[in-house]
Design a protein around this nucleic acid. Sequence first.
DNA 1: TTTAATGCAAAGCGTTTGCACTGCT
DNA 2: AGCAGTGCAAACGCTTTGCATTAAA
Lengths: 136, 136
Amino acid sequence: MDVQQTIIDALKQAGINATAQRIAVGRYVLLEADHPTADEVKAAVDKVFPKISMATIYNTLHTLEKAGILRAVKLPHTGRVVYDRNMEPHYHMIDEESGTLTDLEAQRVKLQHELDKEYDIHEVEIFFRGVRKTDQ
Amino acid sequence: MDVQQTIIDALKQAGINATAQRIAVGRYVLLEADHPTADEVKAAVDKVFPKISMATIYNTLHTLEKAGILRAVKLPHTGRVVYDRNMEPHYHMIDEESGTLTDLEAQRVKLQHELDKEYDIHEVEIFFRGVRKTDQ
DNA sequence: TTTAATGCAAAGCGTTTGCACTGCT
DNA sequence: AGCAGTGCAAACGCTTTGCATTAAA
């Protein structure tokens, strides 16, 4: 099955009408990209689908979010939004040197607290910030 | 010792020239406020010091940040910046009902991971999101 | 034909900037 | 006079909006 069809199926499964623009955006953010900003999505999609408008980029990203197959992450250092196709529980490492954002599977971090006594906790967001050690 | 003098001393200690505007802003963000936005700082300071400009608000907040006596926190749900006078290591709880931000002392949350093997970690930011349980 | 999706341009919001003005020293 | 601090207004970057146009069912 080709990539195009994979995306069309994914969109349909999510209840999203698979238009050409949505397929192009979906293909990039759901299969190819790694935490892109909206700009980067536009730049990438433009190559394949010139003249797509920023409004459609945002519309589509919001549609994917609402459908539960994409997540917007607001970065605390820049304040910018990046899009994350990893829908599993996970945290983020921000490499201060490169600016790169890396996913950390939830099981790599153990959290202990007694906040449940006071709160119904719906989500825990963690950003680690640091630099990758030089391998030696 | 009165409040005014406390702030003047705090500013001087931080190497900041204690102008009238800075005292007004400092008094609010360092003593009175609880995670205010820049707007809220302006609104509060305006009562005491009408016609202060947004530029001066931001200038002063940045000056306090650079002096290490105030911290800017970018909220992941709204993307807005709030100012935090708590300079001890701590995390944040966002009450989804009220929008309130509460500090959580670092020792209330135990974090275990082996990321230090790969990274020099400079900071860990945690946002808990949930609602306060109804006392029963 | 009537509904959904798109594209454009304008507006919005919070923040930053440039620059002239003020007021201490 | 010199200089840090201030205020205004314009610019900024990203995102959202309104609305007319197009494509699709």
